[in-house]
């Protein structure tokens, strides 16, 4: 099963650094779409700004490369006008939760049917390694040379509280789980969030002495554990991965459509 039918080959090799996790997310996303068998014409990929947002240029679907943090707002417009489309929004951690933090929580609150893939590399990679809201306490960045004193978000807990109806987390090491989660998220009727821990060896790993891409992916194996595992009880520092939330809630576009239908009947009388 080749994923080449889904990419714009003329833009390859891509601009991401050697060993960048975003390429693995792209790979998994294309495999998920290929397995679902959705027509290229029914997929819209909307992205903002940042390394992760470059994804929209590489895929051969309908794509929108929009403003920093505002991808979800544009995606909401697309989905409201043509609710039949499958809208996928790949975002970075800063794009989704700093610049686009408000768009993120309100898209989740509305439960509009789209898939937000948050590639969490814990840094602003493209602009040179400034700390993001996901960098975490005690880590180094160009703008935190004496270590960061900000605490990070828990994307899964934030999304759950904001009202997302599907929330999952995995890493670039666990590629098969990642593909399955993206598939589930696309099929889910409502706002879906898939957080992917994605390595930035150039601007995060190197500055924090975590080694290269391979060592960072090895750490995903040892620092994460399935939800509710015994290992998590013994070592609370482990990061849980799996599906946190999967619930049925009224979807925004269908609710809106129901109002239109109701008012149409009202005026006919």
């Amino acid at each position: 099963m080749s994923v080449k039918k889904f990419i714009r080959e003329r833009f390859f090799p891509h601009i991401w650094c050697q060993g960048c996790g975003h390429g693995i997310v792209l790979n998994a996303m294309l495999r998920a779409l290929s397995a679902l068998g959705i027509s290229k014409n029914e997929i819209v990929v909307v992205s903002g700004i940042g390394c992760s947002a470059r994804i929209s240029g590489y895929v051969d679907f309908h794509t929108l490369h929009t403003l920093h943090g505002r991808a979800l707002a544009f995606a909401t417009g697309v989905k409201m006008s043509l609710p039949g489309l499958n809208v996928i929004v790949p975002m970075g951690d800063g794009d989704a939760l700093a610049i686009g933090g408000n768009h993120f929580i309100h898209a989740a609150r509305r439960n509009i049917d789209m898939t937000a893939i948050v590639m969490n590399n814990r840094i602003y990679g493209m602009t040179g390694g400034q700390f993001s809201p996901l960098t975490g306490y005690g880590m180094k960045a160009t703008t935190a040379p004496y270590k960061n004193i900000d605490h990070d978000f828990d994307i899964a807990e934030l999304s759950r509280a904001a009202g997302a109806s599907y929330v999952a987390r995995t890493t670039t090491y666990h590629v098969q789980q990642l593909t399955e989660m993206i598939k589930e998220a696309i099929l889910h009727d409502g706002f879906s969030v898939v957080e992917v821990l994605s390595q930035c060896p150039t601007n995060f790993g190197r500055r924090n002495k975590m080694g290269g891409a391979v060592e960072m992916m090895e750490s995903y194996k040892s620092l994460t554990t399935p939800i509710g595992s015994k290992a998590k009880q013994e070592n609370p520092a482990l990061i849980e991965r799996g599906v946190f939330v999967q619930r049925e809630l009224p979807e925004y576009c269908s609710e809106y459509n129901a109002i239109i239908e109701k008012l149409k009947k009202g005026t006919e009388k």
């Binding site: 080749s2 994923v3 080449k4 990419i7 390859f12 090799p13 891509h14 991401w16 060993g19 960048c20 996790g21 975003h22 390429g23 693995i24 792209l26 790979n27 998994a28 294309l30 495999r31 670039t172 090491y173 590629v175 098969q176 593909t179 891409a213 992916m217």
Partner: peptide
């Protein structure tokens, strides 16, 4: 096929 799934550059099939 794990090399194919994990390749960030889509270079392996």
């Amino acid at each position: 096929r794990m090399c194919e799934f994990r390749c960030p550059d889509l270079a392996i099939e």
